[in-house]
């Protein structure tokens, strides 16, 4: 793979529903995280001790004696571990219980997987366990301030262009179809696929004011961001 994320933060996923567990794990893997997934909390202390996660994604309702809140308390007792809860319960009382159990974030089902990945990144970045800046050769993206700099010059991007670039940057080296871009950047509502073309060309124009083309079209497949490596540039 080209340009894997330098850091490899470790995420522990505890979710009993196999589809959610696999889908989330796969998305986190793609985003460059090292993952470990279990279906229940029975072996959690041992798993956590071995895997040494930087963050835990916990389903709230789990089979077995301890629910997600209980697992979170146990995990935090052993180590200072950030926790994101996945839950079907979204009442105010449920949220308060979640934050009371030490949640760093609280994601209500059903959720968009890419949004969950973004929340994982945000929590890790906030806690300083993930660099705030994505470094792609001459392109630098500060995900905390949403600032983009190419070859030392700041780019003025719209919010949509920024989200598009950030997604392409996280998936750099991979060819992304229009459908993928549309759903992950705009969401799952019924948008016009032309949105992608329009925004890609706008983004491309802004990027190319300060350097060669890095956002390429792959005919018949989609788009790919190929950053200029220091070695390639030289």
């Amino acid at each position: 793979m080209v340009g894997r994320m330098p850091s490899s933060a470790r995420v522990l996923v505890v979710e009993d529903d196999v589809l959610i567990r696999e889908s989330v794990t796969a998305a986190l893997d793609r985003a460059g995280f090292a993952t470990c997934a279990v279906a229940d909390g029975s072996q959690l202390p041992a798993v956590a001790a071995e895997f040494r996660p930087d963050l835990a994604l916990l389903d709230v309702t789990l089979p077995g004696p301890a629910d997600g809140f209980g697992l979170a308390r146990a995990l935090r007792r052993d180590r200072d571990l950030p926790v994101i809860f996945l839950t079907a319960r979204d009442g105010a009382a449920d949220r308060l219980a979640g934050f009371g159990a030490g949640a760093d974030d609280y994601v209500v089902k059903p959720f968009i997987v890419e949004e969950l990945v973004a929340r994982v990144r945000a929590v890790l970045r906030r806690l300083g366990r993930l660099p705030a800046t994505l470094d792609l050769g001459d392109l630098k993206i500060d995900e905390q301030s949403a600032e983009v700099v190419r070859a030392g010059a700041g780019l003025e991007l719209t919010a949509t262009e920024y989200r598009l670039l950030a997604y392409l940057a996280h998936e750099r080296g991979r060819i992304l179809s229009k459908t993928q871009l549309l759903t992950q950047v705009w969401g799952y509502d019924d948008y016009d696929a032309n949105l992608v073309e329009v925004h890609v060309s706008a983004l491309r124009r802004k990027l190319e004011e300060h350097g060669p083309r890095i956002l390429h079209t792959v005919r018949g497949f989609g788009y790919v961001l190929r950053p200029i490596d220091g070695a390639q540039a030289a």
Binding site: D17, V18, L19, I20, E22, S23, V24, A26, A27, R30, A88, K109, P110, F111, I112, V113, E114, T179, Q180, T183, Q184
Partner: peptide, 14 residues
């Protein structure tokens, strides 16, 4: 619903 959504997303994405 969350499971269906997550599974379908995976099919789109990967």
């Amino acid at each position: 619903l969350a499971a269906v959504s997550a599974g379908a997303e995976r099919l789109i994405r990967e």
